[in-house]
């Protein structure tokens, strides 16, 4: 089954790179210009009618975003992964939301998490997971979550005892908050 898919994709896209092949599982990488063609071909003539996931990987060192579309054929349980690489600055990827209604939610999430724009998605830019986010998109590699967390929520207090009971008990008392002070007085 997967052999036939592979052969047909290879004929149509000679620049295709094979990433991984397993039992009923194929992962190919295509040029970014032909990614949409490959997906449409998989949908219309190869039987991969369902979109399972749209994912993206930040390859910061190469200044690229790798997009991966995971398609599935429900009739014979084969999975096809199609990847393509896009430049990292002002990354624009075509939207699939008019082909698969489920794509819209995946694209909204990726827009929020990576800042990759999907023109053609009618609901792009609506808040999905975050609310009032002002920093750079959080899933990018250059966003440092630990520093951000430290700045916003305060540092984590170091552990002074190894006995958890004492450790947690003490820390609740030592917190530099009004309630914490009160608890300390109560002790």
């Amino acid at each position: 089954m997967i052999d036939k898919t592979k052969k047909e994709l290879e004929i149509r896209f000679p620049l295709l790179k094979l990433v991984r092949e397993m039992h009923n599982y194929l992962h190919v990488e295509v040029e970014k210009a032909s990614a949409m063609d490959a997906i449409l071909m998989a949908k219309t003539s190869l039987g991969f009618k369902t979109l399972q996931l749209i994912s993206s990987v930040d390859r910061m060192e190469e200044n690229l975003f790798q997009m991966t579309w995971i398609l599935e054929n429900y009739n014979n349980e084969t999975t096809l992964l199609i990847s393509a690489r896009y430049p990292r600055e002002n990354c624009i990827v075509p939207s699939l939301s008019d082909i698969w209604p489920a794509a819209s939610a995946f694209e909204r999430e990726i827009f929020e998490m990576f800042g990759i724009s999907f023109p053609g998605n009618p609901r792009e830019g609506e808040d999905f997971l975050l609310e009032g986010w002002k920093d750079i998109p959080p899933m990018r590699r250059d966003f440092l979550t630990e520093e951000y967390s430290m700045k916003l929520y305060g540092e984590r207090q170091p552990r002074e005892h190894l006995d958890p009971r004492q450790y947690i008990g003490d820390m609740v008392g030592e917190w530099n908050t009004p309630m914490g002070q009160k608890r300390k007085e109560e002790k």
Binding site: V19, R20, Y25, H27, Q52, L53, S55, V57, T68, I70, T79, L81, S83
Partner: peptide, 20 residues
């Protein structure tokens, strides 16, 4: 190094992990 997508049937349906 590598990329893989694994699937498992949970009580709510197919669960997938895309690991790079």
């Amino acid at each position: 190094a590598g990329e893989v997508y694994t699937r498992v049937e949970s009580s709510r349906g197919e669960y997938g992990y895309y690991v790079v």
